[in-house]
Design a protein around this nucleic acid. Sequence first.
DNA 1: TTGTCGGCCGATCGCCGACAA
DNA 2: TTGTCGGCGATCGGCCGACAA
Lengths: 195, 195
Amino acid sequence: INSELWHACAGPLVFLPQVGSLVYYFPQGHSEQVAVSTKRTATSQIPNYPNLQSQLMCQVHNVTLHADKDTDEIYAQMSLQPVNSERDVFPIPDFGLRLSKHPSEFFCKTLTASDTSTHGGFSVPRRAAEKLFPPLDYTMQPPTQELVVRDLHDNTWTFRHIYRGQPKRHLLTTGWSMFVGSKRLRAGDSVLFIR
Amino acid sequence: INSELWHACAGPLVFLPQVGSLVYYFPQGHSEQVAVSTKRTATSQIPNYPNLQSQLMCQVHNVTLHADKDTDEIYAQMSLQPVNSERDVFPIPDFGLRLSKHPSEFFCKTLTASDTSTHGGFSVPRRAAEKLFPPLDYTMQPPTQELVVRDLHDNTWTFRHIYRGQPKRHLLTTGWSMFVGSKRLRAGDSVLFIR
DNA sequence: TTGTCGGCCGATCGCCGACAA
DNA sequence: TTGTCGGCGATCGGCCGACAA
């Protein structure tokens, strides 16, 4: 998984706990969130543990980033070890304090009907193209370059980036429709690019 | 699930036990079959229960027919209740002794490269068309009719059935390619029609 | 600045009989 | 009897600037 892209998709409010640190786990809240995300009601389908404490102090043993193979929805998996007090905490060697990197250079666009239709390509917002994409050779007629991009699963995609039309604009043409088809994108979905 | 089509696909050797009847369950054999069908080795991935009897007498409580939503592979799910002797058997009311119906009127064809290619339609074996399909009006030029068919999941598909060419032959044309695409059929796959 | 459209051209789809295995 | 092919017309994909919101 591309960690930086993962955090760009998760947004600036999502911080993951460090491995080895202490967190509180709230079983009831977790159960309710699972119920919502799987569209079941908590009482009918998800077991209830009435003797469980409302919050459990835990040490984080592992954190892994994931993205659904099919939908690219991002999520994280954490292994938690319940501890009774801070004395139980198992010291974990610090491998250089890997901080979660939240990228600052990115742009996100909600896809329009034209972006996802088979009739044409992807219209790149001007500021986004000028800030993030490698600069075009504007002496070419028209200015064109090939963009090679990697997704969350590190699959590569190549797009033709062209600056054309009247008035002039940035577009992704060849390669874009394959991307839309493979990811089954629809108008209203979002794409996010990072440098 | 279309029960009659399910049995046509399963073949004449597959009989399912009646609800309420007694069967023997073989854990080891089941484990080995799961290992084969999931392409894992029994020893490495599937738990071993050394204290389990080699065969368990069970009463059948439920039998449901299924087909994989994606691949249309058929399978059955059975709920078994272990019993120690025939005295434990729970009497189950007999709702008219629903026998598994094995249809006699059907035909099965392994798809050729031409059948699955986008270049044309489906070549219907003459005997199959004459035995199973509704008779064509041979006064038409050419004889044509619309065939409405239901699959295992009771989705409907419509095919244009035409009798043409030199020499004359039965073909499914319009609608066939959509079926091949949706089911992701390849040469070597089989299709089965029942009346 | 950018979403949608008409124009246009090439690629593919899909219906047809010819032919031969 | 039926699998594959060449021929062909219709449809679709996809690149272009025009235009307007």
